[in-house]
Amino acid sequence: MPERDTLVSVEHLKQYFPVSHGRILKAVDDVTFSIARGETFGLVGESGCGKSTTGRAILGIHRPTWGRVCYDGKDISRFTRAEKMQFHKKAQMIFQDPYACLDPRMTISSIIREGMDVHFSYSRQEANDKINQLLAQVGLTEDYASRFPHELSGGQRQRIGIARALAVEPEFIVCDEPIAALDVSIQAQVINLLLKVQQERKHGYLFISHDLSMVRHISQHVGVMYLGSMVEMAPSEEIYAHPLHPYTKALFSAIPTPDPDANWASTRIKLSGEVPSPINTPPGCKFCQRCPYATAACHESAPELRDMGTGHEVACHII
C-alpha cells in the first residue's frame, strides 16, 4: 500500500457484548484498517454487521474487548486525562437520526456552543460570531440560532448536527449514516456540505452507510463488512470496478439501478437466506452459509484478509 499520512488506525479490533445465558455477541470480530488525513473511508454493510460499533469504538465510546485503536500513532485507551480531552476535540461524530441527536430543550446556539465552551475560552461576542459563522458554513442564516430543534426540518437538523461537530474544529469525523433519514434532494445537499468542509479543512472521515452509490461518490477507500468481519477492502474505484468477494458482488448487484433499460432483476446475483445471528457464530468463513461457492475449507477455517495487489484486500478462500 502506498505511504499515507495515517490519522486513525484500527488494529485487530474486537468488540464483544455479553448477552443472556453466558452467550457472547461478536459485534466486531478482528477488524484492521486505517484512515489517512484528508481521506474518506467508506464502511458499508447490512444492518447488524458491526459498522456503527466500529465507528463508536474508534471514538472511545466502547472499550474494545481486544485490539486497539490508535489516533495519530497513540493508543486511545492509554490517553492521559489531558490527552483524552484533546482527543474528544479532534474527533467528532455526526449521528444518523437528526431527530434524536439534538436536545429538544436547547436552542440551536446552545447546542452548537456546548462543545465550544468545553474546549475553548471564547468571550460571549466571539462565541456568537463563531456560531453565526458555522451556521453560514452549513447554509443556514443567523435567525436559526435562537430556534429550537422542533422548528427545523430533517435536513436542517442534520446541518445543525454537522455544525455542532465542526464547532470544536475537529480533524476527524465519524459520519454514522448521516443521510439515511433524509430525502434524496436533501441527501445531496448534506453530501455536498461534507465534501466542501473536507476540502477546506482536510478532515478525515469515516463514512458509515448502507447507501453504496453515495459511498462510492464520497470515499477514497471502501471496506465491506459482514457479520463483524471485514470481507473486502480496497480503493473505491477498484472495489466498485472489480469486486472480488462473493458477498461484495452480491451486495453491489442488489442496488437497484435507476435505469429502466438496465434489466436489473435478471442480471443480479441472488443471495438466499438472511444474515445469521452474530451470537455464537460457528468457526469458518462467516459468509459460508449463504455463499454459492462455499467449499469444505470455508466451513472449517476463517479466511484472512490477503492483499491481491494494488491495495485490494479480500478475505476469501476461493480467490
Binding site: S185, A188, N192, R216, E237, D259
Partner: peptide, 30 residues
C-alpha cells in the same frame, strides 16, 4: 426516466450520484 420534461423530475433524477462525477459537487435542489 428517458423523456421526462418536468424540472422537478429532472432534479430528482439528477440528485442520484452517477459514476462519472465522483467527488464532485452533487446536483442538489435548494
Amino acid at each position: 426516466f428517458k423523456e421526462c420534461m418536468h424540472p422537478y423530475t429532472w432534479a430528482l433524477l439528477r440528485s442520484i450520484p452517477r459514476d462519472s462525477q465522483k467527488g464532485t459537487t452533487l446536483y442538489s435542489l435548494n
